[in-house]
Amino acid sequence: MPTGKLSLLLVTSLLAGTVSGAGPGNKPRSGYEFLSPETRDMQEDEFSNPGFQTVDEGAELFITAGENGKSCASCHGDRGQKLKPRNIASYPVYSEQLEKPVTLQGQIHRCWTERLGKPAMKYDNKDAIRLETFVRNLAEGRRIDVETGGPMRPYYEAGREFFYKPTGQLDMACAHCHEQYVGARLRAQVLTQGQSNGFPTYRLANNRVNSLHERFRQCQNLLRAQFQKAGSDDYINLEVFMHARSNGLRIETPAIRF
């Protein structure tokens, strides 16, 4: 009876199972660190970073008035200068009124209908992503600081569970690639920690700015998993966990990523 071999296997598999979050070896590293020098330069130069076209489109929407003659700029200034970068960097935040977390895009939707009197947009509507990209870019360089305690705790925990749960026919969890195998190559692509500090981000894979929820859908689809609609409760919880996981990293929106 190969008891020795069996228990050795058991120990190995249990050890492999302790993939629990941010230990000292798992200091958050921006996807920027995994880019080639050329792509880094492209990201940092406003004129060569194609994501800034989306920022400009968002800026345009920001000053466009709704039915009631008000625009985002009416409250927040023509260039959004009255918005505090510190607040932007703290999203998602808990809303006492809604009794759940609200993402930055979620807050834009609330303003859009409640303050501007405009017809509601779907989550991840192109204009909503444009506005989100513009607003988040206002906090570029600011360190992400998402609350994980208090009423945010259960949502953070739910997002965390999602991150570690294998899914789809390929039976992989986010953590498999973005925690266990960071730095390894999946074909020619280097696996990053999958940090969210560059989102909405310009993806070289599809040559446009992608929201975080779009990226969740793309990843789940790749795993042959049943992906969800943008703005779903699961994705909002995952966004809470992901942004909190990026706490301390500087916002790079619009970043350039593969």
Partner: peptide, 30 residues
């Protein structure tokens, strides 16, 4: 069966053991 936490997919795993599979692939092995 050998390494429960392996990243490697089970290419002929019992489809009952897959979770949250996209409709197109449901009930099927890889």
């Amino acid at each position: 069966q050998l390494f429960p936490h392996s990243i490697m997919p089970g290419y002929y795993r019992n489809p009952e053991n897959y979770i949250n599979v996209k409709k197109k692939f449901r009930g099927k092995t890889i």
